[in-house]
Structures are given as C-alpha cells and as structure tokens.
Computed example of a mutant assay.
Amino acid sequence: MIKKNLRTHILLFLFTFLTLTFKGDLFIGIFQFEWRQMLEIFRIEWSYSLSLITILLCHEMGHYLPARYYGVKATLPYFIPFPLGPIGTMGAVIQIKEPIPDKIKLFDIGVGGPVMSLVLSVPSWLLGLSLSELVPITVSSDQHEFLIFGDSLFTYWTSQWIFGAHDPNLFMIESHPLARAGWVGLIITAINLLPFGQLDGGHIIYSMFGEKYRKWIYYLFLSFLILSFFNFTWLVWGFLIYFFIKIEHPFVPDHSFQRLGKKRIFLGSFMLISFIFIFVPAPLSIGSELDAPNLLEYFFGW
C-alpha cells in the first residue's frame, strides 16, 4: 500500500513537470510525434517548469515536515497536473490525516508552506525579470491575443526598479521563464494566504486571533467579495471559499500552557502584510478583455 501511494506521488510529480513544460503542446508530442518541436519547447521552458515545481514542492514540504515533526499524520504532496492554460498546473496539496492538537502546531504547520514559496518565488521573479526584455507596444501590434500577467504592488515596483520608470500601457515585458515561475509562485502564495477556512492564511489568522476572530471574519469575507466587481476570478474564489473551503476555521484548542509568543506573532504578521504586497487584483487576462467592462461598470455604468 505504501509503495502504491509513493508511486502515485512520483507519477503525479513527473506528469506535472511535463504539463508545466509543454502545457497544451503535450498532446502534440503524444499524438502527432512532433519531437523536434517538443525538444525546442523543452529547451525554452525547462527553467520555468523546474523552478515552479521546486517552489511547489518546497511549499508543500513546508507543511509536511512540521506536521511530521509534531507527530501529525500527513501525506506526501499530491501534484495536480493541468495541461490546459498558460500555467500547466493547479498546484499541489498534502492531506492532514488527523486533527491538529493545538494552535501552536496549527500555526507552524500552516505558516511553513507560504514562507517557503515566498522565499523561493521572490528571487526567481527578480532574477527572471533581470533576464527579461522591455519592449514598446507599437500602434500596429495586435494586443487582442496578448496574455497579460497582472501586477501586484511588489511586481509593479520591482519591474519599475529593474527597467526604470515606464508606462505599462506603452511597454510590455517579454518575460523570461524564471520570471513567470516566480510570478506564479507569488500568486499561489497569495491565494494560499487568503485568511479563510483551511487555507494557509486561515490557519495563521485563526492561530493568532483565536476564537474572537469569528466575530469579524465574515465582514472580511464580504470585503474580499468586493474584488469580484473588478475581476471575475475572485467571484469564483468566493464561491469556492463559501461552499468548500469555508469562511471560518474549524475549532482547534489552545495549547495547554504555551502562547504563540512574539516570534510567531511577528512571523504571522509579516506573512499577512506580505500578502498585501504580492496579491494580484487581476491575475490573468487577454488583450481583448482590456476594453471589456468589469461587473461594476456592467451593472452600474461606472
């Protein structure tokens, strides 16, 4: 049984590496045997897939290792391949197989993942950005098919720092694969830091504020839903959180005699503040959507 489960983890890992590298072109190699084209794609994309799968692996091990340290049963990471779309994966997950005994252990298990992915995604983004090119958008260029990776405060400021002051409406960044891996790692970290339910941010904020957070967490969720007026992505996430992930965290008892302490409070606060800087209000869009009205404009004409 253990060997069978290990085989599943390894196969999902390998298949996810392939979908990260080839994405939808994976089917070309399988069914049309365009091996030269596949080798060229691999030459270009291997740094993206290797970097991102490392970020995902370290994120999940940031949960898995503290869980095993505290004697909490947990599975190895399950990677989720997704050969459609521009990213190539839907992330990775581990499964906690038993209740977490107290809030200190909950905090350590919850915070480890986003700390690891943040620490790895930032240098991947910065190094990749330094290898990218800033090119002008010409009047004749057709932007309707452009895939646009949205900016967070962090990615906007760092791109302005590395390339110098420029107008994103007049220039576009031709991203190096390392930069794309860093961008995806940052947005995965940000989504996991949403402060709801069983997401990492939910673990962190519940551990820090305890049961009293239930008095205001629904107001925070309503504030989050305001984002859906500007980008439909967050309406989908609001649906997933409300019906599946849940808004409130399940009850976990306090530690019998120990508090979180200043170091954990500082680390939790740092991660929640970092969420503000790496959160992307409009993650992905295509050029044809730029002039389309958002929900606020559609319903209210604003």
Rank of each mutant, 00 (worst) to 15 (best):
K103V: 04
L147F: 15
D108Y: 03
V122K: 06
S159N: 12
I217A: 01
I205A: 01
Q160T: 04
V122W: 01
H203Y: 14
P177I: 10
L178I: 08
S141R: 11
V135P: 07
F107Q: 03
D108R: 07
A181T: 05
Y213H: 11
I148R: 09
G150S: 10
G202K: 04
V111I: 15
G128H: 06
K105D: 03
D108Q: 02
Y156D: 12
F149I: 14
T189N: 13
S207A: 15
K212R: 14
L153F: 14
H144S: 15
P114W: 08
V139N: 13
D151Y: 13
W161F: 15
P177C: 13
G202R: 04
G110V: 06
S124T: 11
I173D: 09
W183D: 08
F209L: 15
F209D: 00
K105T: 15
D102R: 12
L193T: 05
T158L: 06
M172E: 15
L186W: 13
M172K: 15
F209G: 01
L194D: 06
I148D: 07
T189R: 01
D151T: 07
P101K: 11
G128I: 05
K212T: 07
H166P: 14
G185H: 09
L147H: 09
S117Q: 00
G128N: 07
P136V: 11
G202W: 06
I205N: 00
Q143V: 12
W157M: 12
P168M: 13
S207C: 02
Y206D: 02
L178S: 12
I204K: 07
L127R: 02
A181F: 06
E174H: 14
P136W: 03
I173W: 04
L129K: 06
I104V: 09
P195C: 01
S175K: 10
F196C: 05
A181P: 08
Q198I: 13
S121W: 00
L194H: 08
W125Q: 04
V184Y: 09
Y206K: 00
S140Y: 12
P168T: 15
L106T: 09
I191N: 03
G185L: 01
W183T: 07
P195V: 03
W183Y: 13
G164P: 14
V119N: 00
D102M: 10
W183I: 03
T138P: 01
T138H: 13
S132Y: 06
L120W: 01
F149Y: 15
L118S: 10
D200K: 00
E145Y: 07
T138N: 10
V135N: 09
L131R: 15
L178V: 10
G110F: 05
A179P: 10
P177K: 14
F171V: 13
S132K: 04
I173S: 11
P177N: 12
H144E: 14
M172W: 09
H176I: 12
L153N: 12
I173T: 11
V119W: 00
D108V: 04
V135L: 14
